[in-house]
């Protein structure tokens, strides 16, 4: 227990001292996972909206595939992105392997299903009468769709939080495709692995505290959104 408390005290000191090694890695984590979630939004919201509103044969299968995407093992995604980007791979010419671009690519693949799945559920939960009424009042198809998404906006923000929480805490994909290079591709999770292996527990715990704080903030946000939903106002038509 002494080991843990000592390390915890040192970790807090490290965080407060603004150690550049620590903060550079934290910044790189936020950049990579933030970038991946942003790209995930661009792909996931249209896909989720479409799957949530359209009716076509095979939709059930498509929804199941998106939901399966939630359980993609990061290390397997890392493996495929690694092969794709390695020198002999199909995209080797990009020279992305062991760069933040490779890490964003891998985490995008992990984040997009989160955004798509939550968007899908969110647009499905908005009463369809809303759009019909908007259309009846003279809104164009696009205006009606935007209104629909506006109603689902809280859930969409939860999608961002869930996707971000998932990718910032994964280690398998970023370790494989990023390579944990100091000052370039070392992020919070890969740094925790390395510092633990080096026996530098205080530094590892400092990173762990930051990661826990981020995960807590993301989940607190999701919880708030979920609790807010039952109080939503009644549908426009009765």
């Amino acid at each position: 227990m002494d080991l843990f408390l000592d390390a915890l005290r040192q970790a807090l000191r490290l965080l407060l001292s603004g150690d550049p090694y620590l903060w550079r890695i934290i910044a790189r984590s936020l950049q990579v996972s933030g970038g991946a979630v942003l790209l995930g939004l661009l792909a996931g919201i249209p896909l989720g909206t479409w799957l949530g509103l359209a009716r076509f044969p095979g939709r059930g299968l498509a929804v199941a595939l998106v939901n399966t995407g939630l359980a993609l093992p990061p290390v397997v995604v890392g493996l495929f992105v690694y092969i794709l980007l390695s020198r002999q791979g199909p995209l080797g010419a990009l020279g992305w392997l062991y760069t933040p671009s490779a890490m964003i690519t891998a985490q995008f693949v992990l984040a997009a299903p989160y955004v798509a799945a939550i968007t899908l559920a969110a647009v499905g939960s908005v009463p369809p009468q809303l759009r019909l009424q908007a259309r009846a009042l003279g809104a164009s198809r696009w205006q009606a769709l935007l209104l629909h998404l506006r109603e689902a906006r809280l859930a969409l923000m939860a999608a961002v939080a869930a996707g971000f929480g998932a990718v910032i805490s994964e280690v398998g994909a970023v370790m494989l495709v990023g390579g944990n290079v100091q000052g370039e591709t070392r992020v919070i999770t890969t740094a925790i692995m390395l510092e633990t292996r080096r026996g530098r527990f205080a530094t590892a715990i400092a990173f762990g505290l930051i990661l826990l704080t981020i995960a807590f903030a993301a989940n607190a946000f999701i919880t708030r959104v979920q609790q807010a939903q039952p109080r939503r106002r009644r549908p426009l038509t009765s």
């Binding site: 062991y98 370790m175 390579g179 944990n180 290079v181 100091q182 000052g183 370039e184 070392r186 890969t190 740094a191 390395l194």
Partner: peptide, 13 residues
Amino acid sequence: LEAGQGMGAALMM
């Protein structure tokens, strides 16, 4: 470049 990984991973890199 400080890889912070094992020998196999460093050689691959």
